[in-house]
Design a binder for these strands. Structure first.
Lengths: 340, 340
DNA sequence: TTGTACGCGTTATCAT
DNA sequence: ATGATAACGCGTACAA
């Protein structure tokens, strides 16, 4: 009789089924060469005992830890959570677990932090979110630690099989198209912070969009931001102080768009009557603002899913880069400009 | 010479330091009975080799997995992320990792899902967030699986050492006090969904607050909500249809308050001039709304920290329940009512 | 104070 | 097709 207090091990199953440990192991790992009859017998005992393989022991024997790490430093909670959801969908019904690790990109020992994480958890792979995904030192660190990784980003800054890409620039172009179609010509940009690849890409998409419609680039209509609410407010103030005022603003994320909306409310500038506004991210609050914000939706959950799959599946060498399309979701913050 | 390709093990350290494994093990676990000289020698070799103990092997030998699980089903992203942050602060510099597990409380196999998680990951303990923290079946499941747990909640529904509590009801009372001090008497409530303990507690705090000020309870001024933006809109519509309209609304979370604000904007009801509004959660968007929302701040990060500590530290039997105070953060959505 | 021998639960090697 | 035996890296009795 097996002790009922202890959780059953592979040995318990083996003795009870009258086979060897290795045979049980073969059943668990669904090895092809097994007499169906033996397999059934073992499977029956597994069910009886409620045996579940111990992942720690597996990890030790396989020299592989069934853990996926998520590395991020992102102020946008919903983005992180959506990403987590995508990963969790991918690892459902696998033995993988998701362990999260926020880091501080402004801290001098961010790299030590990450190294510490990799050494302690030894994840099978990590997924790195923007903006720190653009940091090559982190990628090198992973390589050095023998840890797989996938970087999420808006440009090709790594080998295809280590990258899941979004087409930020293109999507921003569509936003510009939409504004121009409504009749806007004096369109301002609230940029993301310097050094962010995504900010660069979005800016590029914006300028190319303007160019496509034969609109000259006015440097005075570009305001620096930092992807934060406050920076959006500051940028909007600068923009609103200009004369003539822009009739439309594209903000490089929803949070800055929210800041701009805030300042517009303060100054009695009605959106969309006096000003059209488009954001980027389609964060949940975008729909909750007044007016509901037109914004670029980023397929973060599907990207996360793809990233996790890449890490779980044996890396196909000729794997193509995954690239996901963003899209413009139209709500109520855009209207034709007022005739002067 | 140790192979430079393989990550060093305790054996490498032992042979190089000229001691036994056990001695190295003692150094790692800072056993008291060691000659300082031996300790130093071993520590030197550890540093030289860059040795890091393998947590999987430790877990196997100790029959203890250094993993903390987070179980939740909560629509509010920021709450989850703040909680994660609190846990991560607690486990920083420990060997614990945080693995997250969202579940669907409406799914019939939520319990099987959780059981699966516990069996596969065998976490040292799990932290359970509202609203599923109120589900006793989950707690029993943990016990049955030999897994520690801590439940977060707004009432005492478990033993003190398995609970981290917030004083939702009291805090809502303070919000009512604030409204009454400003001169409001016709104060409405947008409730949380039925079956949520937090909703119950907040309602209780609201009614007791009214009572304290001698204001009769008008059932027509209580609208059902579901902690979602849309439900907040619906509830606000019902409230605004009443005559006379309430001069103030307390919404049981910020998301519903955002919905109410939305409807107010639609109907041209100016906040705070025509209507005062208070939310609950102090989610980041509360500060980004127009006007910035006065709300109850819930110390979720500190609660998370405490919960993780409880799980990490050997459970002191006489541990007192942790109870954390929420507080009212005043912004711009409250003003004295208009004289009729 | 330190070392020896063995156990933790699993997989891999090499037999049979 | 299956089994004996040795890893994997670390902790604990128990001995020295």
């Amino acid at each position: 009789m097996i002790s009922s207090k202890r959780t059953p091990t592979i040995n318990d199953v083996a003795t009870r089924a009258g086979v060897s440990k290795k045979t049980v192991s073969r059943v668990i790992n669904s090895s092809p060469m097994l007499k169906p009859q033996t397999r059934e017998k073992v499977e029956k005992v597994i069910a009886e005992l409620g045996y579940v393989p111990n992942p720690q022991a597996r990890a030790l024997a396989l020299r592989r830890n069934f853990v996926l790490g998520l590395l991020y430093d992102n102020p946008n909670a919903q983005t992180i959570l959506n990403f987590q959801q995508g990963v969790l969908d991918a690892i459902r019904d696998t033995e993988f677990a998701l362990v999260v690790r926020p880091v501080d990109r402004h801290s001098p020992d961010m790299l030590d932090d990450i190294r510490d994480f990799l050494e302690k958890q030894r994840p099978a792979g990590v997924m790195i979110l923007p903006p720190i995904s653009e940091n090559d030192a982190i990628a090198e660190l992973c390589l050095e630690q023998g840890c797989g990784y996938v970087r999420m980003g808006s440009a090709e800054f790594d080998e295809p099989h280590r990258l899941v890409e979004s087409n930020d620039g293109e999507a921003v172009g569509w936003a510009v198209d939409h504004l121009v179609e409504q009749g806007h010509r004096r369109i301002a940009l609230i940029e993301g912070p310097e050094g962010f690849r995504s900010a660069l890409e979005r800016r590029r998409g914006f300028l190319e969009g303007l160019d496509r419609h034969g609109i000259a680039h006015d440097p005075g209509l570009v305001a620096k931001g930092a992807y934060t609410f406050e920076s959006g407010k500051a940028a909007a103030r600068a923009l609103f102080d200009r004369d003539p005022r822009p009739t439309a603003i594209f903000a490089c994320n929803d949070e800055m768009a929210a800041g701009a909306l805030h300042v517009a409310s303060e100054r009695g500038i009605a959106v969309p009557r006096d000003l059209s506004l488009i954001g980027f991210d389609d964060s949940p609050t975008a729909a909750h603002m007044w007016p509901p914000l037109t914004t670029v939706s980023w397929p973060i959950t599907r990207m996360a899913n793809a990233a996790a799959m890449k890490l779980i599946a044996p890396a196909t060498p000729e794997a193509k880069p995954f690239k996901f399309d963003s899209s413009l979701v139209q709500r109520s913050s855009v209207a034709p400009p007022q005739k002067p």
